[in-house]
Design a protein around this nucleic acid. Structure first.
Lengths: 101, 101
DNA sequence: TCATTTGTTCGAGATTATCGAATTAAAGAA
DNA sequence: TTCTTTAATTCGATAATCTCGAACAAATGA
């Protein structure tokens, strides 16, 4: 498993961020990473094929939402909250607060 | 031109809202409606075909972002800000503030 | 070395996006 | 009324993206 690409969040557009979060599965992943902290892809298993989940993580990574580091045979994902807050002040907090209901 | 469907914003999911705003053209439309007030589709002309623009408006309408009323040969669009604020507290304000930069 | 676990990549079929052309609807002029 | 203009939607075709299962790759441990 080779290292994955992570963009500089400062280079990410708001539309890209919203696109990444504009899918029920991806939004739930972001929400759970925020609430439960970093975890592996399999721990976040949603009811989609694992290849589809991999695709969703790729989109989240490329939008700067998620950072994935490898640890053994798995990949641990975390929300890039600090960087997102810097680039998009108030946005993640508002989204996560609404998603909490 | 028949009347168009407008959903109850309370029934709209956060993912649907983000999906609708997760496109550069649609995000710009929402942003301009917020800043400049209601206006016709043609006044908002972006550099896409008008059939594509019509498609974008349909998505914005169905996500509860935009209300369109007919006036003569044109359609006047407005942001459903009050209802969006009620359903998604703080979200539109945060997005519009970031989009301002 | 071999099997297991965890994810990614590949290839195919389904869904969605974009465009130009045709259509509909309202308004105004002849 | 009939014709023209303006504004936007709908249609049909092509392009791009999504989802899935199957195959593959990389690290772990028996």
């Amino acid at each position: 498993m080779r290292e994955l690409f992570h963009p500089d969040v400062q280079q990410v557009s708001l539309a890209s961020l919203l696109y990444a979060l504009g899918d029920p599965v991806r939004l739930e992943i972001a929400q759970r990473l925020a609430r439960e902290g970093e975890q592996s892809c399999s721990a976040l298993c949603c009811d989609v094929a694992k290849s589809t989940l991999s695709h969703h993580f790729k989109i989240l990574r490329e939008a700067g939402v998620v950072y994935s580091r490898k640890e053994g045979t798995q990949r641990i994902n975390s929300l890039r909250k600090t960087e997102l807050d810097q680039r998009f002040p108030g946005v993640m907090d508002a989204l996560l607060a609404v998603a909490e209901q």
